[in-house]
Design a protein around this nucleic acid. Sequence first.
DNA 1: CACCAGGCAAGTA
DNA 2: TACTTGCATGGT
Length: 217
Amino acid sequence: MTTKQRLLNIFETLLLAFGKRHWWPGETELEVIVGAILTQNTSWRNVEKAIANLKANDLLDFDALLSIDNYELGGIIKSSGFYNQKAIKLKSFLQVIHNVFNGSIYNIKNYDTSFLRKTMLGINGIGPETADSILLYALNRPVFVVDSYTKRFLYNHKLYDGSWKYDDVQNFFMANLPRDTHLFNEFHALIVCLCQTYCKKLPECLSCPLNNEYQRE
DNA sequence: CACCAGGCAAGTA
DNA sequence: TACTTGCATGGT
């Protein structure tokens, strides 16, 4: 079985086991972007509270967020942890959108993916995972998102030895899968679901739904 | 009680 | 280049 066939098999198996994940929860691009920053090293449960709090204060709005005081913003997103840093990160991101993209978040749709990625990576607080999450889940660009779960999954299933960097892991998926936004969207979400359900720690991954897939080899 | 969660940047060697 | 540390709340 080739790597491409194996990856697609794994995807089909996970989809069958868990169903569609309907990622990313969020009604607007801004909500997805805010969530992507707030969920850095933080459980999604705590991020949901922060987003609800932002909505309750009418702050899930580009201009409102841009003008709010950092200290006050930190208090509102406190439940997401690292709230002082994240307040600064959110403001930095919005400030760049304001400066580079002519003052509107909606203009960023008109720019190509590599320019957007490079620009986002230049913002303090935006690393590769956050940038790619925004590209895929907010802007529907065919970019594969890598996180700690992705590496754990590949390692547990002996698809890599643990030495690859972020870009190496991303290239592995993108070189062996059709460049399809919906596929990348669902695959990443399914890997997260798999690891949160079965593969809590390295290197164990017992009673994993993929075991049958391997027995077929 | 300890440990982790859908990371990143800055500092050190 | 390759580690280490600070950031911080809330759930299990």
